[in-house]
Write a protein that binds this DNA or RNA. Structure first.
Length: 274
DNA sequence: AACAAGACCTGCATGC
DNA sequence: TGCATGCAGGTCTTGT
């Protein structure tokens, strides 16, 4: 489900809704997510107060008093949702945090590609899941010079390269196609052949598309929603993703679809020549 | 080292 | 109606 804009939208919603709330008790489903919960997971959450909600790449960081952080990833189908009252648990509700004010914070993930774990807040940056991640695309550390340096010697195609979280974080299958289109660069261009001008355009395109998507509350294709349950609406602004056969918004040529690294890529063959 | 392919899951749309 | 197939927003591991 979620790329950076969707995770950021959830982060923002959680920050507004649950900072200051205290976890009264914890219920876990019997199945395991991508990785098992840490030792004494429920006990370590119980009684804690939520002090901040942050994001690193596509990970959500829920800081608790007492010095631990609840680190979660939403995989393809995960979501955090704040529910009024103690609604009945649905089939794929894996973590249910009953809050002292009566609401319930629920982690739901049908496909279970997501994960949740705990980490000392002071050690977040060195956590194995986060240590190797590339720069945040909306931060100063991501620029054309850095991108070009990472591209050097890479024979692989640009679009899968952009989805590599060691290169830049937060860009997934939708926004990789959208960013290549906005930058007028072919998704099939070997990453090592990227020119400086193309790198500059790509950096701007990635920033712009992510920022616009955040402003639209993310993209809802099937089941994504923010922490309050509201869908995003950036999907109405896709220029290539999911538009196979429809006219290019620039030149009218039919948008094409192909598979790269086992994922669907959408592009305009006329506006994005190799 | 770099890249491709497979693995991990469920749910939904489609076609026979 | 039932069943098979393919596809979906992500990463991690294995194999060449």
């Amino acid at each position: 489900m979620p790329e950076l804009p969707e995770v950021e939208t959830i982060r923002c919603g959680l920050e507004a809704a649950v900072v200051g709330a205290t976890i009264l008790d914890v219920k876990l489903s019997a199945v395991r997510l991508r990785q098992s919960y840490p030792e004494h997971f429920a006990e370590r959450l119980t009684g804690r107060r939520i002090v901040a909600v942050r994001r690193r790449a596509k990970y959500l960081l829920i800081d608790l008093d007492g010095g631990e952080t609840l680190l979660s990833h939403l995989g393809m189908s995960g979501a955090w949702r704040v529910q009024a009252g103690e609604a009945r648990a649905l089939t794929h509700d894996h973590i249910r945090l009953r809050l002292a004010d009566g609401r319930t914070l629920v982690y739901r993930d049908p496909r279970r590609f997501g994960l949740a774990t705990l980490c000392p807040t002071a050690e977040i940056v060195t956590h194995p899941l986060l240590a190797g991640l590339g720069p945040e695309p909306l931060g100063d550390a991501f620029d054309a010079v850095t991108l070009l340096a990472r591209c050097r010697g890479k024979a692989g195609a640009l679009k899968p390269f952009l989805m590599d979280q060691k290169v830049v974080v937060g860009v997934g299958n939708i926004y990789a196609s959208e960013a290549c289109f906005r930058a007028r660069v072919s998704p099939f261009l070997p990453a090592g052949e990227l020119t400086r001008a193309q790198a500059r355009r790509l950096v701007l395109a990635i920033r712009d598309v992510l920022e616009e998507a955040i402003a639209s509350g993310g993209s809802t294709l099937r089941d994504y929603a923010g922490a309050d349950g509201a869908p995003g609406y950036f999907q109405h602004r896709f220029e290539v993703y999911g538009r196979e056969g429809e006219p290019c918004t620039l030149c009218g040529a039919p948008i094409r679809r192909a598979i790269q690294a086992q994922r669907a890529t959408y592009w305009c063959a006329k506006c994005q020549k190799p």
